[in-house]
C-alpha cells in the first residue's frame, strides 16, 4: 500500500516537469509579452521598457527562464506575478480555495442526487419515471454549460434572489463570521447548480447502466436463490459491484470539474483558479500561468490517485494486484 502511494507520488514529478516545460514553450511561442501593451504608451521610453523586460528576465530565451523558474520551484517558490505584483503561489492559494469550494459543493450535490436516482431508474427500468429521468439526463448532457451559466445569471438578475456573479458581497469584510458564512453560501448556490447539472446527468446514466449490467450477473441470481429480500439483493449485492466503475469516473470528474469550473467561473465571475488562469493568459503574466497550470495538473493527478485508492478499497480484486 505504501509503495503504491509513494510510486504514484513519484509519477507526479515527470508529469509536472513535462507540463511546466510545455507551458513555458507554448507561452514563448505566442507573440508579445506583458509589456507589449505598455509599449503603446508614448510616455514610456524604449530604454525604460528594455529595463523592465530585463528585470523580469524577459530578454532571455525561454529555456533560460525555465531554468530560473525550475530552480526556484524546487525551493517551493513558484514565481512572481508581474500583473498582481505578489507571489504567484500566494495568489493561487487564495483562488484555489474558491475553486475547491465550488468543485466540492457541485460534486457533492451531483453525486448525492445522481447515484440514488441512477439506482432507482435501473430498478424501475422502462417505467414512466425512468423515461423521465432519461429525458432530463439527455437535456442536462446536451445543454452547454455556457448557456446554462448565462441563464442562471439572467435568473439572478431578474429575480434578485441570488447575487449576479462573484464569490462574496461588497460589504463582506464588515460582516460577523456567521453573516460571512451565509454570504458565501448565498453566492455559491447558482454556480454550484450550474456546475452540478451537467455532471449529474452523466453520473446518473452511468450508474443506471452499470446497475442494469450487474443485475444480470449470476451472483445476483445466487443472492436471490439464497432467499434474500429483493432490497438486499439490489443494495448489498448488486450496487456494491456496480459502484466500482463510478469510482474511476470520480477521478475524471475531479478533472472535469476543474475544467468545468473554468467556464462557469469566467461567465459567473467566480474568483477561482480557472478564471485566474484565463486572466493571466490574456495578460501574458507567464509565471502565474505556469504556476496555475502546474497547480491544476497536480490537482488532476491527485484526483486520479484518490479514485485509484477508493477503487482498491472497494474492489478486492484490484487491491491484491
Amino acid at each position: 500500500m505504501w509503495t503504491f502511494t509513494v510510486k504514484r507520488l513519484l509519477h507526479l514529478i515527470p508529469i509536472l516537469l513535462g507540463v511546466s516545460l510545455l507551458t513555458f514553450l507554448l507561452m514563448s511561442l505566442t507573440p508579445g509579452d506583458y509589456f507589449t501593451e505598455l509599449a503603446q504608451n508614448p510616455q514610456i521610453s524604449p530604454q525604460k521598457l528594455a529595463e523592465l523586460r530585463a528585470k523580469a528576465h524577459l530578454d532571455r530565451p525561454w529555456y533560460v527562464r525555465y531554468g530560473y523558474w525550475l530552480s526556484n520551484a524546487v525551493r517551493l517558490d513558484f514565481g512572481y506575478s508581474i500583473a498582481y505584483k505578489i507571489q504567484a503561489s500566494e495568489l493561487i492559494f487564495s483562488r484555489l480555495w474558491n475553486t475547491f469550494l465550488l468543485s466540492l459543493s457541485a460534486s457533492v450535490l451531483a453525486w448525492s442526487i445522481a447515484v440514488p436516482l441512477g439506482i432507482w431508474a435501473a430498478v424501475h427500468k422502462d417505467s414512466v419515471a425512468d423515461r423521465a429521468c432519461s429525458l432530463i439526463a439527455f437535456a442536462g448532457l446536451s445543454i452547454p454549460e455556457v448557456l446554462l451559466a448565462l441563464l442562471a445569471l439572467m435568473f439572478a438578475a431578474s429575480t434578485h434572489w441570488f447575487p449576479v456573479g462573484g464569490a462574496q458581497g461588497a460589504t463582506f469584510d464588515l460582516l460577523t463570521p456567521w453573516e460571512q458564512f451565509c454570504d458565501r453560501a448565498h453566492h455559491l448556490v447558482l454556480p454550484t447548480l450550474v456546475l452540478a447539472a451537467s455532471e449529474l446527468a452523466g453520473i446518473m446514466r452511468q450508474m443506471r447502466s452499470n446497475l442494469l449490467d450487474t443485475l444480470r450477473a449470476e451472483f445476483v441470481t445466487t443472492a436471490r436463490a439464497k432467499g434474500l429480500p429483493e432490497g438486499w439483493v439490489i443494495y448489498k449485492h448488486a450496487v456494491r459491484n456496480a459502484i466500482n466503475p463510478l469510482l474511476t469516473m470520480f477521478g475524471y470528474s475531479l478533472a472535469g470539474l476543474l475544467s468545468g469550473a473554468f467556464i462557469v467561473e469566467n461567465v459567473m465571475s467566480w474568483p477561482g483558479l480557472g478564471r485566474l488562469t484565463m486572466e493571466s493568459l490574456s495578460k501574458k503574466d507567464h509565471e502565474l500561468v505556469v504556476a496555475s497550470v502546474v497547480m491544476a495538473t497536480a490537482l488532476l493527478v491527485i484526483g486520479n490517485f484518490v479514485a485509484d485508492l477508493l477503487l482498491a478499497w472497494s474492489d478486492p480484486r484490484i487491491r491484491l494486484k
Binding site: A217, F219, T222, R224, A225, K226, R240, N241, S314, D315
Partner: peptide, 28 residues
C-alpha cells in the same frame, strides 16, 4: 407471495450454478 418465496429459496431448494467464478459475489 414474495415472503413465501423467500422461505422456499434456500430453505427448501438450494442452487449451484455452472460458473462458480461468476456466481459468487466478487467483493465479499
Amino acid at each position: 407471495s414474495p415472503r413465501e418465496l423467500r422461505a422456499i429459496r434456500g430453505g427448501v431448494v438450494s442452487y449451484i450454478f455452472q460458473e462458480p467464478g461468476s456466481s459468487l459475489n466478487p467483493v465479499f
